[in-house]
Design a protein around this nucleic acid. Sequence first.
DNA 1: AACGTGACGGTTGAC
DNA 2: CTGTCAACCGTCACG
Length: 321
Amino acid sequence: MCIAFGEVNQLGGVFVNGRPLPNAIRLRIVELAQLGIRPCDISRQLRVSHGCVSKILARYNETGSILPGAIGGSKPRVTTPTVVKHIRTYKQRDPGIFAWEIRDRLLADGVCDKFNLPSVSSISRILRNKIGNLSQQSQYESGKQPPHPPPQPTLPYNHLYSYPASKVPTPPGMPTLPGHMAMHRIWPSSHSVTDILGIRSITEQQISDMPPVCSAKLEEWISGVDNAHLNPDAKYATQSGLPTVNSYATAPSIHPYRPPTPASPYMGYSATMSGYVTGPTWQPANGSALSPRSCDITTPLAFKSMAANCDAIHLVAASAL
DNA sequence: AACGTGACGGTTGAC
DNA sequence: CTGTCAACCGTCACG
C-alpha cells in the first residue's frame, strides 16, 4: 500500500509513516548535535520528534552511522552449505561431538563469526536432518553435489546484518567515524557522516560498477528521496509537488527555527538552514558552515559533491513536474 | 523542561 | 505471483 502523502507530526514536521527520514534530515540532526545544540532544540528546529532525534543520535554515537537500518527482508539463513559441510566434517572426525562444541569450533575456525553462528538447536537440527547417519552423508557427498554450487563466502551476509550489532563503543559526545565498521552493508555503502558527505567520490566507482537498478537505488539513498523519482507513488514527491529532499522538508508549515536568544548557535546556522530547509536552490554557503566536523575529511569538497548531487536530484525533480 | 523508552501503526523485502 | 514474517521506521505518550 502506498502512502501518497506524508503526515504531519505534533511539531508540524512532515514524515512518512513507516519510512525513514531522508538522509538530509538525519545528517542535519547529527550536524546540529555536533555543534552542541541540544536534542530538544534539534527536535524543534527540524520538526522531528525528540524520540526520533534521540534514536538517531544514539545510533550515530554507537555505530558512527546516520543511516537507517535495513528495512524488510528476511534474515539470511545461517546454515549455509558451507556451514553444513563443516559441521559434517566435525561430526565425521568426532562422532561424539556435541552441538555446542561444533558451535565453538565453527567460531574458532572462522567458518562463522558471532553474527552468523548457528544456534545449538540449529546445529542439532542439522545433525539430525541433514547429517544424521554418517553413512548417508558420505553418499550425499559423493553424488549429491548441487548442479550449481553457489559460491559460499565464509561470511556471506555478515556485512548485511552485523552492522547494528557491530557497535563501536565510543565515548559519549565523541563519536568516532569507524568507516570500516560503518560499511557492513553492501548498500548503502557507507553510514558515516563524512562518508555521506563525501559519498559521491566514494560511491562513484560502485555506481559505475553496478547494474542500473542498483545505481538508481544508491542514488535514492544518497539523496534520501526514497522512490520519489522511481516509484509512481512518489511518496515523498507528492507532499509539495517537488520530489526532492528539499520538498520533504518544505512543508508549508515549516520555517527555520528561530533561536530564543541571539547568542544561540542557531544564528550562525539560520541562513544556511533557511536555504537548506526551504530553498529550492539550496547550495551550501561553504564547506565549514555545513560541516561542523573539523576532522578527517576534505569536507568543502565533499559538500560540493553533495550539492552537485542535490542539484542532480533537482533536475530529476524538475523533469518529473 | 529534557530525555529515554516502549507501544503503536506503518513499510519493506527475502523467503 | 502472492502471502507471510520479521526486520525496520517515526510518532506519541509516559515516566
